[in-house]
Amino acid sequence: MAENFNQPIRMCISCRDRHQQNTLVRLQCKDGSLECFNGSGRSFYICRTCMINEKKIIKSLMRQCKSGEKDKLISRLKEIITDDRES
């Protein structure tokens, strides 16, 4: 019954909804480039429903990475999603 009690809850940067940590994708920005979280530094979470909607997520990614290159961010996000699905 109390199995879900100890699951960490995190917030998606795009929709601001709270989800269990294991259902979110954890990313980070290094030098204005979007990367998978490598274990050090600041990171943020994106839910899977927001990852599908490109228009919804671009504003929050640009704010998080402090970058104006939205095409570069979107293409990198698509690469990360594709790599995540394959593994």
Rank of each mutant, 00 (worst) to 15 (best):
T23Q: 10
K78I: 02
F37I: 11
A2K: 15
R42F: 09
R10E: 06
H19L: 06
E79L: 05
C65L: 02
K30H: 04
T49L: 06
D31L: 01
E35F: 04
C15V: 11
M1W: 05
S14D: 07
D84E: 11
M62P: 03
G68L: 14
T82N: 11
R18V: 05
S60I: 08
K56H: 13
S43R: 06
N22A: 06
D84S: 13
Q28V: 04
R48V: 03
R10P: 02
R16T: 12
E3S: 15
C36L: 13
N4Q: 03
S40G: 10
E3D: 14
N22Y: 11
I81S: 03
R63Y: 12
T49A: 07
C15Q: 07
D31T: 04
I57G: 00
F44R: 03
C29D: 02
S33I: 10
H19E: 05
R42W: 09
Q28K: 14
R42V: 10
S75C: 13
N6W: 12
V25I: 15
S87C: 03
D71F: 06
F37C: 08
P8H: 04
M11N: 07
F44C: 07
L34V: 12
R42Q: 14
S14Y: 00
K72S: 07
E54Y: 02
R16M: 09
N4Y: 07
S75A: 15
D17Y: 12
C50R: 03
S67H: 08
E86Y: 06
S67Q: 12
C29W: 00
K70T: 12
C12D: 02
D17N: 15
S67T: 15
M1G: 10
K55M: 11
L27F: 06
L61M: 00
T49V: 09
N22P: 01
I13H: 05
D83T: 11
I57W: 00
L34Q: 03
C36I: 10
S75I: 14
R85W: 00
M11H: 03
L24V: 11
I9L: 09
I13D: 04
E35R: 08
R48L: 01
S43D: 12
N4A: 02
K56Y: 06
K70I: 12
E3P: 00
C47S: 08
V25T: 13
